[in-house]
């Protein structure tokens, strides 16, 4: 994503909104970053520098927190984010085959995004749905008991029509 005046205004608005919601204190940092991440899809540099100003916390510390937590991203992600549960219960019931198929289908490895910005493929730690493994999550939708054969059909649901 390139930055122009318009979307950097959107970033500032997202930061301001999150800070207003939670209050400009250090202990609210993670909720604030979570909100911005959800709204923008990741944490752009501009967002971190603005949070740093408002919370009076050095940028280095913000970056350290932002890179520590899996759910906070410092790089842009695709329009559709596929999360594959890489935990042991999913692994023992055939998760590896599903993971291989996902990688083949999208031509992506863990943590990568397609050049057109449509798909990101990431692994995620246990989603707590171990009774119905293997589990994948596409955006906010959860799929359980996934087989390799179902992968392309599931992905097709998110492909844009036309």
């Amino acid at each position: 994503m390139t930055f122009n005046a318009e979307n950097s205004q959107a970033v500032l608005n997202a930061v301001q909104g999150a800070v207003n919601r939670h209050g400009a204190t250090r202990e609210e940092l993670i909720p604030i970053l979570n909100d911005i991440n959800r709204e923008i899809g990741y944490l752009p540099k501009e967002a971190l520098s603005q949070v740093s100003k408002l919370l009076q916390v050095p940028q280095s510390q913000l970056f350290s927190v932002a890179t520590f937590y899996h759910m906070l991203n410092t790089k842009p992600r695709g329009k559709n984010v596929i999360q594959f549960c890489e935990s042991a219960p999913c692994h023992v019931v055939g998760g590896r085959e599903v993971w291989n198929r996902l990688q083949e289908e999208l031509n992506l490895s863990d943590g990568e995004t397609t050049p057109d910005g449509m798909w990101s493929l990431v692994t995620v730690s246990c989603l707590g749905l171990c009774g119905v493994g293997p589990v994948i999550m596409v955006n906010d939708d959860i799929y359980g008991n996934v087989t390799p054969q179902q992968v392309s059909e599931i992905l097709n649901r998110y492909k844009e029509v036309g």
């Binding site: 935990s87 042991a88 219960p89 999913c90 730690s125 246990c126 707590g128 749905l129 171990c130 009774g131």
Partner: peptide, 8 residues
């Protein structure tokens, strides 16, 4: 923060 894989 129930993070253990397989625990829900």
């Amino acid at each position: 923060d129930e993070g253990d894989p397989g625990a829900f």
